Simulated scan of single mutants.
Amino acid sequence: MKREGIKRYIPVTIFTALLVTIIYELAYTYKWWELKVTIVPWGYITNVSYAYGSFLIGTMWIFYFTFKKFWLFLVANIIADGIDAFLIREFMELRGIIHYINLSNWNLFIVMVALSLIAFGFQVWQEKTFKLKESGT
Rank of each mutant, 00 (worst) to 15 (best):
K36W: 09
I79D: 12
V75P: 00
S54E: 14
V48H: 03
K128D: 10
F122V: 03
S49F: 09
K131A: 13
F122L: 07
V113Y: 07
L18S: 12
K131L: 15
N105T: 10
T129M: 10
F130D: 06
E4H: 11
V37P: 00
L115R: 02
E34I: 13
I98H: 03
G5F: 01
I62L: 07
Y9Q: 03
L117F: 12
G5I: 01
I83D: 07
W61L: 15
Y24E: 07
S135W: 05
Y52S: 03
A51L: 01
K128N: 12
F91T: 14
S49H: 08
R89V: 15
K36A: 04
N77E: 00
G136T: 07
K36L: 14
M92W: 02
H99E: 15
N77F: 02
P41W: 04
F55R: 03
F63N: 02
A119H: 04
F120S: 01
Y50M: 07
M1T: 14
K69M: 08
I6N: 04
L132D: 13
V124L: 11
F65T: 08
L87Y: 11
D84P: 00
N107I: 09
N102D: 08
I101L: 09
K36Y: 08
G58S: 14
W106K: 02
I45K: 04
F15D: 09
T66W: 01
E34P: 08
V124C: 10
I78G: 00
G5T: 10
Y64S: 02
T38G: 08
K69I: 07
T46Y: 02
Q123K: 08
W125V: 12
A114S: 15
L132K: 15
N102T: 05
M92F: 10
H99R: 14
F109W: 12
V75K: 00
Q123T: 05
K7Y: 11
W106S: 05
I39D: 10
K133I: 12
P41G: 06
Q126P: 04
I88C: 05
I23Y: 14
F15G: 04
E25G: 10
F109Y: 15
G53C: 13
I23M: 14
G136R: 06
E4G: 06
K128E: 13
W71H: 09
I39T: 14
K36S: 01
P11K: 00
R95I: 10
V75I: 14
L74Y: 05
L94W: 11
I118S: 07
V48L: 06
K36E: 11
A76I: 08
G58T: 09
I57Q: 03
W42D: 00
S54N: 12
K7M: 09
E134V: 01
P11F: 03
L19Q: 01
I118P: 05
